[in-house]
């Protein structure tokens, strides 16, 4: 039997919280618009921001109060939709998950589009090559035999086996942080491998061998140089490099 929590408790004084401080930041955004010029350049703004503000809030402040032409994708604004991956001070992050106070605000904050994908305008890149790689690994459950009347059974342990890679939001922060992907656009890239992993290690799936064969390709997992950029970049905390290693291991042993 579960224990009922107390009807009344003494709250600690800290619970009250405090006023949210404000501070000034310099935001520098890499601008590119082929309708205007073939050359990219930097624009810079001084902004007063709040302690709970994120880089996305700073970008919105620019767009809404200073220059409406600054262009970037965003939607959910709390790190689950994957729209606003960008390079922030040289690291791939989601703008909506990066608090300004966690950056060094004594220096300008540099915001650029993610690398390795063609830039369309300002921080917007062409995502099609990224989704093309994703589609190639057959990112859907393939099961042979009869469909059960009710659900397929899967133990909690079997479910845990691929839990980490189900968290992917396809933001491309990992793939576009990978030096191999920058130099070789044919490489599947970490995100596609993560999504292959999600099915290869799912006990309900019967197409693991096919996916392993696809990733055994010369543009597959063997291009990975384990630089760990992808794991550091993942805003969902997926251990990307570990997942790639597990796929490599599975190709060698043909055991999942």
């Amino acid at each position: 039997m579960e224990k009922e929590p107390a009807s009344k408790v003494e709250l600690s004084k800290d619970v009250a919280g405090g006023e949210i401080p404000t501070f000034d930041v310099t935001l520098k955004v890499r601008r590119y618009n082929p309708e205007v010029s073939d050359e990219a350049h930097w624009d810079e703004w001084q902004l007063t921001m709040y302690g709970t503000d994120r880089v996305l809030d700073a970008l919105h402040k620019v767009k809404w109060e200073h220059d409406g032409s600054v262009s970037f994708r965003r939607s959910c604004a709390h790190g689950v939709c994957g729209s606003d991956a960008m390079r922030i001070n040289g690291r791939n992050r989601l703008a909506c998950k990066t608090l300004l106070k966690d950056l060094d605000t004594s220096k300008p904050i540099l915001v650029e589009p993610i690398k390795g994908l063609p830039v369309e305008k300002d921080l917007i890149v062409d995502m099609e090559p990224f989704f093309q790689s994703y589609r190639e690994i057959m990112p859907f459950l393939i099961s042979k035999g009869h469909e059960p009347a009710k659900e397929r059974l899967q133990s909690a342990e079997e479910r845990d086996r691929y839990d980490d890679t189900t968290k992917c939001i396809l933001c491309a922060a990992c793939t576009s942080s990978c030096p191999v992907f920058w130099t070789d656009g044919q490489y599947f890239g970490p995100a596609a491998i993560v999504n292959a992993h999600r099915f290869i290690f799912d006990s309900r799936d019967d197409a693991g061998d096919m996916r392993l064969e696809i990733l055994n390709d010369k543009e597959g997992v063997w291009r990975c140089r384990t630089t760990f950029n992808c794991s550091e970049a993942c805003p969902r905390g997926i251990q990307v490099t570990k997942a790639i290693s597990e796929v490599k291991q599975a190709i060698l042993t043909r055991k999942v």
């Binding site: 859907f140 459950l141 659900e151 397929r152 479910r159």
Partner: peptide, 16 residues
């Protein structure tokens, strides 16, 4: 959804 592959949390018996 389960048949399409959705990774539901499971009971000790392996059901949803």
């Amino acid at each position: 959804l389960e048949k399409m592959g959705l990774p539901f949390n499971r009971t000790p018996e392996g059901r949803i």
